[in-house]
């Protein structure tokens, strides 16, 4: 297994997976690591609960038409999820390398808005909505990944935090794209009804300034 990336909570591995005899596909294995600082019993409980929850969030998102990697296997007892490998690039890299025109990026954000609108309409908060957690596939489709901090929620404030995090990412990492949020919100309001309420909450969240840009 080849290590793709190391995170605070989990590591990602790239692997070949045999879906039927002789029929292999590339997959990502997300493995939640042991934390030695906490007692074993608690550590196992946390890792299995979260593995189960993340797969539920992804499954539910997919059922509601949100493009997320397809899940092939979940093993909460061994703390891993096997999911489809999406061949493509992270949006963060694409935007930093400026390989797309501003118009294409704007168009892309309209689509991201529609996707996040669907996600929120289905009662799911992503929890870490940055361009590093979006993949543009070779086929030009946009995927949301990493639901490790996600929640099932219907609270406007939780949705507002998703938008706040994305907005801050645009302002700090991609500061040439500040006005791009406008396109996101256009798409967002096409697929999500309570936009006004969420934008109201967004003001509160911004006033508190609690969330750090990355």
């Amino acid at each position: 297994m080849a290590l793709m990336s190391k995170g605070a909570e989990a590591d990602l591995y790239l692997e070949e997976y045999e879906i039927s005899p002789g029929n292999k596909m590339k997959v990502v294995v997300k493995f939640r690591k042991e934390k030695k600082y906490r007692v074993k019993q608690l550590d196992r409980k946390i890792r299995s609960t979260r593995t189960r929850k993340e797969s539920k969030l992804m499954h539910s998102a997919r059922e509601n038409g949100v493009p997320v990697p397809w899940i092939l296997e979940v093993d909460p007892e061994n703390f891993y999820i096997v999911m489809e490998y999406v061949d493509g690039k992270r949006l963060r890299e694409i935007m930093l390398s400026k390989e797309l025109s501003k118009e294409s990026v704007n168009e892309l954000f309209r689509e991201i808005g529609r996707i996040v609108g669907k996600l929120h309409s289905s009662g799911i908060v992503h929890g870490d909505l940055t361009t590093g957690n979006m993949i543009l596939s070779e086929g030009g489709e946009l995927y949301l990944i990493d639901f490790g901090l996600g929640e099932f929620s219907k609270r406007a404030e939780d949705f507002a935090v998703d938008i706040y995090v994305l907005k801050r990412t645009l302002e700090s990492t991609h500061y040439e794209y500040k006005e791009t949020l406008k396109y996101f919100l256009e798409g967002y309001s096409q697929t999500f009804e309570k936009v006004r309420e969420v934008l109201e909450k967004l003001k509160d969240v911004e006033r508190r300034g609690r969330y750090v840009a990355r």
Partner: peptide
């Protein structure tokens, strides 16, 4: 353990 987890996440975030 809860405190340590958020501290760890905070280190990664910032």
């Amino acid at each position: 353990a809860m405190l340590t987890e958020v501290a760890e996440r905070g280190l990664t975030l910032t």
